[in-house]
Simulated assay, not measured.
Amino acid sequence: MKLASDKLASHLKKELAPVYIIGGAEPLVVMECADQVRHSACKAGFSEREVFYAESGFDWEDLALSLSSLSLFSNKRLFELRLNTKPGTEGAKVLEHYANHLSSDSILLIITGRLDSSATRTKWFKALDKAGVYIPIWPVEAASLTEWIVKRLQASHFNIAPDALAVLAERVEGNLLAAAQEIEKLKLLAAGKTIDLDAVGNSVSDSARYDVFDLSNSILKGDIPSCIRIFNGLKAEGIEASVVLWAIARDLRLLNRVGRAMAGKGRLEKVLEDMAHSMNMSPFLMKKRRRSIGQALHRHSEKSIRQMMVEAGEIDEIVKGVRNGDSWHSLMNLVLQLAGARPPIALSSVSF
């Protein structure tokens, strides 16, 4: 049974399932969900806890023996499996066997990274999912971060002023763990139950973390302020110009191919699905970016996209030392152009 992470607490108040799978790429949320399961299991009398780390070379027989053996002290047991690799044939058999031979005296808690569609279609996963609860953890996108912050504060009966919320979200964007830490600090320092702009300004450091995919998404959406902020963040973090260029060039090639296919009266959804397979990209992620890709195509003609591809090639020559120029300066020009900045923003007003 699939369950949203924010529904876990209410579920645990009603029942304890024999299996919990918590998987995702947001470590803080994964950790907090696992803590909720552990706490509820302990309250229910599962006083023994065994932890297994399934990595390369892991002996699945050790887990199988523990799952099938009786407790020395006749206690209820929580088995925790940190799944850092694919189970393989042997592991799949162990997990599937457990799902088909459940015991009221044991709970299996599996903590793993994001499970893709190929993993969730396997027999072992389907057996465990049918027997228990699957909690997929999705990254908290920038658009949802303010709501996440508000809910976290409200859980402790705190409020935050709108301007303070905006600044806090900007400073911790892309770093949920830092966001949680800053919230705890603000709760201690706040005068009363409302956090204002002064409290955030005096307390919160700039903990925003970005990657080139954040920049790519902002470019396609045409969010110019976000593009500038993320671009500067990447440069400050020491990301190579070649990596930033790779992401931009990839999107330009994608837009060029999609635009040409659309010119042949193809439907955007079908075109993106075909592109995902031909460009070895995730169909799920391609579908998720459909709207932003459509926005970028609406802003640019096939001719302008081709011109930007030429510019990307020239920047590549600068990066490789074949052509003279400032690669970061040229990259920022390309970023702003692709994001739809018209007329061009004077680079003297853009901090590097």
Rank of each mutant, 00 (worst) to 15 (best):
A249I: 00
A249R: 02
A249T: 10
A249E: 03
R250L: 02
R250K: 05
L252F: 14
L252V: 05
R253C: 05
L254S: 09
L255E: 07
L255F: 06
N256Y: 12
R257T: 10
R257S: 14
V258E: 03
G259H: 04
G259R: 06
G259S: 10
R260P: 05
R260L: 14
R260Q: 14
R260W: 14
A261Y: 04
A261W: 08
A261C: 11
A263W: 14
A263S: 15
G266K: 02
R267C: 10
R267S: 14
R267F: 13
L268G: 08
L268R: 11
E269M: 08
E269V: 07
E269K: 04
E269N: 09
E269H: 09
K270F: 01
V271D: 05
V271T: 09
V271N: 05
V271C: 06
V271S: 04
L272F: 00
L272S: 01
L272G: 03
E273I: 05
E273S: 08
E273N: 08
M275R: 05
M275G: 05
A276V: 12
A276K: 12
H277A: 15
H277E: 13
H277K: 12
S278M: 10
S278T: 13
S278L: 09
S278Q: 11
N280T: 01
N280M: 00
S282C: 12
